[in-house]
Amino acid sequence: MSYSSATVIYAARRSAVANALHDGQDLWLLPEDLERVSGWELTPEGVCREGLCVPVPPGKESFVSRRGTETWVNLSQLARLLDQLVVASPKHGVWFFGDSPRELARPLTSLVAPDFTLPDLDGRLYTLSHFRGRKVFLLTWGSW
C-alpha cells in the first residue's frame, strides 16, 4: 500500500483527492473524501447513500480498515460488492468507476430514449428531452 493523490471519476463526476491509499486496483479513502467523491457515507450501520446501507462485511471482504487513529474505506471493494465496475491506472493515480451492466441497460429497457445534454461547436448546450412534442431523428457519426 502506498499513499498518493488520486483522481476519482465516479458517476461521471471527476474529483481530486489529496491523500489516498492504493494497492493495485484498490483505492482506499478517508471517510470525508469518500463522501465527497461518491456520496457514500460511513455510518455505524455501514456505508450509506440515499437511504441504502451496505453493511461492512467481516474479514477479507471488508472495505473498512483502521490504521492508527484513521479509518479508511476501500471504494474499489465497495464498488465490486455493488456490481459496479472499476478500472484504474495506478501509475497516473486515476480510478474510474463505471456503471454495471444492469445500470447501463436500465434506460434502454424503459424504451424511452436515454437523455443527454451536449454542446455544439459554439458551446451551446442541447438536451434531447427538450425536443419532446417533435419527432427526432438522432444520428451519430465520426470523423475517424
Binding site: 424504451l111 424511452v112 430514449a113 434531447l128 428531452s129 425536443f131 419532446r132 412534442g133 417533435r134 419527432k135 427526432v136 431523428f137 438522432l138 444520428l139 451519430t140 457519426w141 465520426g142
Partner: peptide, 16 residues
C-alpha cells in the same frame, strides 16, 4: 451503439 453512422428514431413522447 457499435458503429457510425447510427440512426435512432424517437417519437413525440420521447420513446424509441
Amino acid at each position: 451503439m457499435v458503429n457510425v453512422p447510427t440512426g435512432v428514431w424517437i417519437d413525440e413522447g420521447g420513446r424509441v
